[in-house]
Amino acid sequence: MNVFRLAGDMTHLLSILLLLLKIYATKSCSGVSRKTQELYAIVFIFRYLDLFTDFISVYNTFMKVVFIASSLAIVWCMRFHPVVRRSYDRELDTFRYFFLVGASFALALIWHEKFSVQEVFWAFSIYLEAVAILPQLVLLQRSGNVDNLTGQYVFFLGAYRAFYILNWIYRYLTEPRFTRWIAGTSGVVQTALYADFFYYYFISWKNNSKLKLPA
């Protein structure tokens, strides 16, 4: 574990806590893409298939459980919570994410660490996570005003993988024969997809104005 990876995990955890806070405090999920939340639930379930077979550390197991449980809880709230579900932007959250799932799985069948069920699903979860934010970014563009907590959620969700890129660089420089080509390539694509959001987020922070993504 290095400081970059710890910062990445804590930033990721913070983003999830911010989203839970927004939904709990406002009893609303306006501006939040349920499709992105469902994609993240799929990402965590298929990435952590080794949850019960490979014990890495208490921290690792704990965080995996937190990520799976929180993503499922958020999807449950947005689908079934009697109050929260009413604020879901159903008519704006229309990204056809089936193609993202299909393309990620097809790529995982071609490019993986090892041709085994666990490794193909692991690569699938890595590729899917890279594009999972797309429905959320599209929703932000369509729903003009973005509330602070939702903006902060997306910001920290994008920042966490940037910390992981620093972690991979650090490990590549300090550990012999360390490579993470699949996660590294996918992580760069994932972080790049946030580029324009980061730009408009910085502008809104600098001008102390409401975050606004151009349609």
Binding site: D50, D54, Y164, N167, R180, A183
Partner: peptide, 10 residues
């Protein structure tokens, strides 16, 4: 197993 430790990251 050593193999299992491969995915030591989240």
């Amino acid at each position: 197993s050593a193999e299992g430790k491969y995915h030591d990251e989240l």
